[in-house]
């Protein structure tokens, strides 16, 4: 069944396992993301959600299993930079921006332009790039902070800046790890809107704990536990699943 989907899907994982010092973080994990899909992934702490992203983005190599992007690009053979250039963007669980650069510079660095040493050495800001950065700034609501150092942003603003950087990267697939952790309710709601907007033009995979946020997104949900898929379907379907209740939601 899985194999049939391989050529048409955007992201295709089959039987992916990885272990650290004997501990199986992923245990024969398989799932598929279609082009244009927004997918939420839930699961208890230590379920392997972040590890899954590590595998997709080339940070960790799987012990076994297949990972394909756009049907036939084998991601297990490529490193982080290559995978990023292929069009997979990633937001870390802990917001990671360039703290000693300004908001503007952060976005400039993220822009999808030539990324070689000499290309960057002699890079000149064009009008087009300028406009693109302005656009992203307003999307992530940071226009008035453009000249401030990223270090001075609030936690939520850093999360947004990071999302903005991913937008600047123009990925086809966006992996977002716990984007609303530590955000206020208002910020959370706004983030949901932002992600839905982004998903209009590309595929997005969101890992999140916050069930309210997942409901706001209103998309297909995959529940991971102990390194493999426990259940998959709509939020109501998944949260009614007996195994999910035992493993994750509790009671």
């Amino acid at each position: 069944m899985m194999n049939e989907k391989k050529p048409t899907s955007l992201l295709y994982l089959d039987g992916v396992s990885v272990s650290f010092d004997g501990f199986k973080a992923l245990n024969s994990l398989s799932f598929v993301i279609e082009p244009g899909e927004l997918r939420a992934i839930i699961g208890p702490n230590g379920a392997g959600k972040t590890t899954m992203m590590d595998i997709i983005t080339g940070k960790t190599r799987p012990d076994s299993g297949e990972v394909f992007f756009k049907g036939d690009i084998d991601l297990t053979r490529r490193d982080e930079a290559e995978i990023a250039q292929l069009g997979i963007g990633r937001k870390f669980q802990k917001p990671t921006v360039f703290e000693s650069h300004t908001v503007w510079d952060n976005l400039e660095l993220a822009l999808n332009r030539k990324r070689g040493v000499f290309a960057t050495l002699f890079y000149r800001m064009t009008l087009e790039d300028n406009a693109r950065i302005e656009e992203i700034l307003s999307t992530v609501r940071l226009s008035n902070r453009r000249n401030d150092f990223a270090a001075s942003l609030s936690h939520g603003q850093k999360q947004w800046l990071e999302i903005g950087m991913l937008l600047a990267q123009e990925p086809e697939l966006l992996l977002v790890d716990e984007p609303v952790a530590g955000m206020t309710d208002a910020e959370t709601a706004e983030t949901a809107i932002l992600l839905k907007e982004i998903a209009k033009t590309r595929s997005v995979v969101v890992v999140e704990h916050d069930m309210g946020f997942i409901r706001d997104l209103g998309v297909k949900v995959t529940c991971l536990a102990e390194g493999s898929v426990l259940a998959e379907g709509s939020i109501d379907f998944v949260s009614a699943d007996q195994k999910v209740i035992e493993n994750y939601l509790g009671r």
Binding site: K59, A81, R90, F92, V97, N112, R115, Q169
Partner: peptide, 8 residues
């Protein structure tokens, strides 16, 4: 790692 994941 941020730099790497931006594709550099």
């Amino acid at each position: 790692s941020r730099t790497r994941f931006l594709g550099y």
